[in-house]
């Protein structure tokens, strides 16, 4: 990944931007800026006309800065699209029902459960997965902190933990151990690496917030 793109991701404290925009009352403009162009919308004629129901959808979204154009069965989850179609298997399936957090990715900088997100829903959004965090030259501070604090064992929940942890810091929810525990409780680690995860986030938050 280029340095430019890394900065883009790093510099995107999306939730803060969004809250600020919403508070200022110009949310419509902000959301319109998503450029929600889907094939379904493209078929509209007037704003009040019904949108077309399509059995398949052509969706375009960016994953780790690379645009993906995919012809989708609309049932497809973002998780399965990432793993089985795009071939990015760092994002894991642990429950497929939003109950474990292993599939956590960022959509426009916000953490979501990719198993409960239709791939069709993320048209024109920017997705970041574990593969898009850090690069061969330098790990993301959170990745390094997970190594330093041995915040993992089997490693299967780790990509989801790290994506959630990065968002946790960006959201401003890494202020205390108790707050980290609460805001990381959506990511189950069956190996029980929780104390290491909390320590890693405390440490990485300092680095990230410089």
């Amino acid at each position: 990944m280029s340095d430019d793109r890394k900065r883009t991701i790093e510099k995107r404290p999306w939730s803060i931007t969004r809250r600020a925009v919403l508070a200022s009352g110009s949310a419509v403009g902000a959301l319109a800026a998503f450029g929600l162009k889907t094939p379904a919308m493209a078929q509209e004629t007037t704003p009040a006309a019904p949108a077309a129901f399509l059995p398949r959808v052509l969706v375009s979204f960016a994953v780790n800065g690379v645009t993906q154009d995919i012809d989708l069965d609309p049932r497809t989850s973002l998780l399965d699209a990432l793993r089985e179609t795009i071939g990015l298997t760092g994002t894991k399936k642990g429950c497929d029902h939003g109950q474990c957090g292993a599939c956590t990715v960022h959509v426009d900088g916000r953490r979501v459960a990719s198993c409960l997100t239709l791939a069709a829903q993320v048209a024109d959004r920017e997705i970041t997965t574990i593969e898009g965090l850090g690069d061969d030259e330098a790990l993301h501070p959170m990745q390094q902190a997970f190594i330093d604090h041995d915040a993992l064992q089997c490693g299967y929940c780790t990509p989801g933990q790290i994506m959630a942890a990065v968002a946790c810091v960006h959201e401003g929810h890494a202020g205390s151990e108790a707050e980290i525990r609460e805001y990381m409780s959506g990511n189950i680690c069956r190996c029980g690496a929780y104390p290491g995860i909390v320590a890693a986030i405390r440490n990485a938050a300092q680095v990230m917030e410089g």
Partner: peptide, 17 residues
């Protein structure tokens, strides 16, 4: 079950859809 998918861009369109 398979389904067909629509994504309206306005409330009026959503109601109509």
């Amino acid at each position: 079950q398979s389904f067909s998918y629509a994504r309206p861009a306005s409330l009026d369109s959503a109601i109509a859809t």
